[in-house]
Amino acid sequence: MSDGRFKFSAEINLTEQQFVMLNRLTSPKRWPFYITATAIVALLMLLHPFTFLVGVGLFIIPALAIFAPHKLLNCQEQLYRKSPYFRQQPVLSVSDKGLSFRTEQVEAEVLWSKPTVWQEIHGWLKISPAGFPACWFPVPDLKRAGVYDQLMLKCREFGVKFDSDEANRSDSGKQFRTIYTTYGPPISCHADDFTFGETSDNR
């Protein structure tokens, strides 16, 4: 541990409600404002025959958001329900080399590389490497295992804090562009050194 090496694994059990709450990119505080603003614009459009159809279309968005959020395209509820992985309690690991995500069906690993986004929210540390599912770790467990400080060093070395001044953004596309502009081309710290954990090349 003293030479910078560390490893932490946890079986993560996120309910749909937790998953939605933790993943929502826009703050839940702002959510009612967006819904109300869209509904008002849609209502105004309904008053004029030329904008009536657009108004009807626009009105569907806040209606779905309130009464059937899981029907919205790419909403967190839908992502959770469509994804087989989170219902299988994935085993997430993090080490000085990278992150891994393991379920009955998937074995995936990624080395620490830029761009990575991290965020601490409601006692969870979320680490989102590009092209890889976001990995969640309970902060108290990380601290108890004595790996929290080393992990945060890695997060700061390879990533930026979500919604920080450094990478102020509102959606994932903008978020990656911001990071890329800030840090230049992505770099992998271990070059072609692929494997860690149990996944092996000779499968």
Binding site: E104, Q105, V106, A108, E109, S113, T195
Partner: peptide, 19 residues
């Protein structure tokens, strides 16, 4: 016969057919 693998520099993903 076990599944599909996508491997690139610094990342490896293996998904069984059932996934």
């Amino acid at each position: 016969e076990q599944g599909l693998t996508v491997k690139s520099r610094g990342r490896k993903i293996f998904v069984r057919w059932s996934g």
